[in-house]
């Protein structure tokens, strides 16, 4: 199956906020309550359709632990989109957003689309961060915001797809140089010379998860 564009995403945020589970829910449509610590980086991929065009999302799930922070930073560059995740039941993960955002801004390309995600919305009773606070933070920093639940799958599709839509719009506006792979965007095989891996069009697109 061929695609028009490939977008590279990165998922960042404190350890335990559900980054790996969001990825698994999106690529595999399943939830795994207990999963190992992510060390380094994991991948997932899925095809979506925007504006009638097939777009392949290649998602890089990173380690949240502070010990791996310098390695995580090295993946910002080369991503077109970032999902910055916090846990609505843990105030500290919200408090750390500024530092994550600084990292992202400093190490990524300036056009990277950042989506702020308050995860674990199914745990309403244990909520520590109000939805309004997330919205305010997003507004202040120019991010798109959503609350999701990797467990119930609420808003998970939307979070990934809306980010893709933003990137797609930026391409239409000519903001992204799609021929520079360092921007995290690759033209699909049918777009000719820009594509360097013609084989990738044949690979299985539905998922390649196993993150949790």
């Amino acid at each position: 199956m061929s695609y028009a564009y490939l977008f590279k995403y990165i998922i960042i945020g404190d350890t335990g906020v559900g980054k790996s589970c969001l990825l698994l829910q999106f690529t595999d449509k399943r939830f795994q309550p207990v999963h190992d610590l992510t060390i380094g980086v994991e991948f997932g991929a899925r095809m979506i359709t925007i504006d009638g065009k097939q777009i392949k999302l290649q998602i890089w799930d990173t380690a949240g632990q502070e010990a791996f922070r310098s390695i995580t930073r090295s993946y910002y560059r080369g991503a077109a989109g970032a999902l910055l995740v916090y846990d609505i039941t843990r105030r500290d993960t919200f408090d750390h957003l500024t530092s994550w955002l600084e990292d992202a801004r400093q190490h990524s390309n300036s056009n990277m689309v950042i989506m702020l995600i308050g995860n674990k919305s199914d745990l309403e009773s244990r909520r520590e961060v109000k939805k309004e606070e997330g919205e305010a933070f997003a507004r202040e920093h120019g991010l798109v915001f959503m609350e999701t639940s990797a467990k119930t799958a609420a808003n998970v599709e939307e979070a990934f797809i809306n980010t893709a839509k933003e990137i797609y719009e930026k391409i239409q506006e000519g903001v992204f140089d799609v021929n520079n792979e360092a921007n995290g965007i690759k033209l699909g095989p049918q777009h000719g010379p820009a594509n360097v891996h013609p084989g990738s069009g044949n690979a299985s697109m539905s998922q390649s998860g196993g993150c949790c």
């Binding site: 991948f43 993946y75 560059r77 080369g78 084989g199 990738s200 690979a203 299985s204 697109m205 390649s208």
Partner: peptide, 13 residues
Amino acid sequence: SEDEVQVAGDHQI
């Protein structure tokens, strides 16, 4: 998957 092998071999990242 082939996909994962390819992602692991991403020369940019």
